[in-house]
């Protein structure tokens, strides 16, 4: 006679096999969005991929409660967003930002022009990091065209009107700071 734990393990394996198709579909459908979401915060491709993987591992852990979730896409986005924020807190330096900036420079650009563009990109990223947290989050989330205002509001726990106001303030503040830095 099988023990109680063996029976539970067998049951859970059966359940995981049954939900494997769903997980595969989830990965294929949402992994790109989750990657961009994590990348907008982390600006590191490897870290963003780790966050996506951790997100689906969380889904595997909570596979029993999947049926209770109404909007799986929003649920996944919130998990990935929170995991990205946790990873930023644990990370001490943003050493991978140069890699991202270099990827923005078009190939074949002259050295002087590439240097100037690189300086501008670094300045923009630096000013984005110095924005207030809520404004920064709204600005980065709004850069993802897959997310509308209602979803952004649900992710950060604000109203839609507040999201629009935060986005307006973030853009205004960012331009003002960049102009001020450029006139020095």
């Amino acid at each position: 006679m099988a023990s109680f734990e063996e029976s539970l393990a067998l049951l859970s394996s059966i359940k995981s096999e049954a939900s494997e198709v769903d997980l595969t579909a989830l990965v294929e459908t949402h992994s790109a969005l989750l990657f961009r979401l994590a990348h907008s915060l982390l600006r590191s491709r490897s870290d963003a991929e780790d966050v996506v993987q951790d997100t689906f591992l969380r889904v595997l852990e909570r596979s029993r409660t999947m049926s209770e979730i109404r909007d799986v896409r929003l649920w996944l986005v919130r998990i990935a967003w929170n995991l990205s924020i946790d990873r930023i807190r644990r990370r001490k330096t943003r050493s991978t930002e140069s890699e991202f900036v270099e990827s923005l420079i078009a190939p074949g650009t002259s050295a002087d022009r590439a240097f100037e563009e690189s300086r501008q990109m670094h300045a923009v990223l630096c000013e984005i990091e110095h924005l207030p947290k809520s404004e920064r989050h709204v600005l980065l989330l709004s850069s993802l065209e897959e997310l509308d205002t209602a979803e952004i509001a649900a992710i950060i726990g604000r109203s839609e009107a507040a999201v629009r106001a935060l986005l307006f303030r973030a853009r205004t503040r960012l331009r003002a700071r960049l102009e001020k830095a450029g006139t020095r």
């Binding site: 961009r36 990348h39 907008s40 600006r43 923005l104 923009v124 984005i128 600005l139 960012l174």
Partner: peptide, 14 residues
């Protein structure tokens, strides 16, 4: 530059 950065974040490919 702001638009280029946000555009790059928007179209980052996995």
């Amino acid at each position: 530059a702001v638009d280029r950065v946000l555009d790059a974040l928007r179209h980052a490919a996995p």
